[in-house]
Amino acid sequence: MTDLILTPNIDGADDFYAELLTAHDGLSKEDSDALNARLVLVLANHIGDRKAISQAIKTAKLGR
């Protein structure tokens, strides 16, 4: 079990962000939402660590 990484951890942050935006190019809002949902599931599986995933969910809720 590892703690969620909340410091910069992606080399080439701008490239990553551009790739993410490009993936949404030309999609309807509905299709974009679906893409994001699939992406969350794929990434969560890659992380695997339940504790980290729980912390990630809490972080994304902005403490609310």
């Binding site: 990484i5 909340l6 410091t7 910069p8 951890n9 992606i10 942050a13 701008d14 990553f16 962000y17 972080t59 994304a60 902005l62 403490g63």
Partner: peptide, 16 residues
């Protein structure tokens, strides 16, 4: 990105 950047350092390199 902006919302997360307020509390988490990781999001700041994404702010452009």
């Amino acid at each position: 990105v902006l919302d997360l950047s307020e509390h988490h350092e990781f999001a700041r390199p994404l702010v452009n």
